[in-house]
């Protein structure tokens, strides 16, 4: 069982907290497991939705651990959280509700379009869902616009897929670090 699935299964059991060390993404050779204990702030279904949609937006995001990344960062205080969302005019205290509302909205949109859960959608169905979300076409969507929410989670996915030394190398860009971070995130 890969680490990501272990994490998702652990959350599905309703554990209040998980240790990030137990959900180190595979395929990231330089990643050193964090010992930070991340409070589970998103439901298992929400994390699965996040992982599923991010994988369609940025292939490799699921395996790189985007759901672990977001979950970990949401548990951190304002001064140490690393999410790009902090640049985008959303107050830190509203970050969890931002992700909850967005992921709940995606699930609702999936049920509305296909009468099934987002995580059960085929690739083509997910693409169709994403297209609708990017066009802000769901009238019963609440909170930040769906296109903005997708922009944010796509950026999160790009962080874990392309923002590491391995990610640089995968697109042929020299990393040239002055100081290599001891953890990728």
């Amino acid at each position: 069982m890969n680490s990501r699935r272990r994490f998702l299964n652990a959350s599905a059991l309703g554990a209040a907290t998980i240790t990030a060390a137990a959900c180190t993404p595979s395929g990231t050779a330089d990643h050193k497991p964090s010992t930070v204990t991340a409070t589970l702030l998103l439901t298992a279904q929400a994390l699965q939705t996040l992982s599923h949609v991010c994988e369609r937006l940025v292939p490799g995001a699921s395996e790189a651990g985007v759901s672990v990344y977001v979950s970990q960062q949401l548990a951190r205080d304002a001064a140490s959280n690393l999410l790009m969302l902090q640049y985008l005019g959303i107050a830190h205290e509203d970050h969890v509700s931002f992700y909850r509302a967005g992921l709940s909205g995606i699930e609702g949109a999936s049920q509305s379009l296909f009468q099934k859960s987002c995580c059960s959608l085929s690739s083509s169905e997910t693409d169709s869902l994403v297209k609708n979300l990017l066009a802000d076409e769901f009238t019963d969507w609440s909170g930040a616009p769906s296109s903005f929410f997708l922009f944010v989670i796509r950026a999160d996915a790009c962080d874990v897929v392309y923002g590491t030394k391995q990610g640089f190398e995968n697109i042929g860009m020299p990393h040239m670090a002055h100081i290599v971070p001891t953890e990728e995130w």
């Binding site: 304002a78 902090q86 005019g89 205290e93 962080d159 670090a177 971070p181 990728e184």
Partner: peptide, 23 residues
Amino acid sequence: LQDLTSSQIWARRLKWGGAPVLE
């Protein structure tokens, strides 16, 4: 200086981390 690791992700620690500013 040794805190300044080469990562656009970790660099976000350098940004504003105090009380939110509404915009």
